[in-house]
């Protein structure tokens, strides 16, 4: 993924948790979409994701993809936030033994990976136990 534009265009979501709320049915789309997956409406109002929620499931990645090679093993989970949005992210600052379905987490801004000496450094959100 050598093109910085690809990372840059996701900044509003990844850096500021910007989401969009359907003006008709209230469904929150994250990342933003052009069509509401619930009702088909095409109008949205800007909103921001809830920053806390609880884990629905998780795993510990022992065999990582390339950009995460130096981080393994690390935990990844899907959490349902207070606003109903379900989100995938790493779970950090947490003993693996403490991971469980229902664990309360909050979103924090962290570094995710980097491309190497001259490449892009990727930032975004991670889950941290509350």
């Amino acid at each position: 993924m050598p093109n910085p534009a690809r990372a840059w265009r996701e900044y509003p979501q990844r850096y500021r948790l910007e989401a969009e709320k359907c003006t008709k049915c209230g469904t929150i789309a994250f990342p933003p979409r052009l069509v509401c997956p619930q009702c088909g409406n095409r109008k949205f109002a800007k909103t921001k994701l809830a920053e806390t929620g609880k884990l629905l499931t998780f795993t510990i990645i022992r065999v990582p993809p390339d950009p995460f090679e130096d981080q393994a093993p690390y935990a990844v989970g899907i959490a349902e936030l207070e606003d109903g949005v379900k989100l995938t992210a790493q779970v950090v600052d947490c003993d693996f033994a403490a991971l469980k379905v229902g664990l309360r987490v909050r979103l924090e801004f962290r570094k995710l990976s980097e491309e190497g000496e001259a490449g892009v450094i990727y930032y975004g959100y991670k889950f941290v136990p509350e």
């Binding site: 629905l56 499931t57 795993t59 993809p65 990844v76 899907i78 995938t88 975004g124």
Partner: peptide, 24 residues
């Protein structure tokens, strides 16, 4: 790629999360 792979998820990882949910 942008919202699963970006966070370091792999295919075994995705199915592992399905397994954890099913077991739970």
């Amino acid at each position: 790629q942008e919202y699963e792979g970006f966070h370091g998820l792999t295919f075994p990882g995705l199915y592992a999360m399905m397994a954890v949910a099913h077991m739970h």
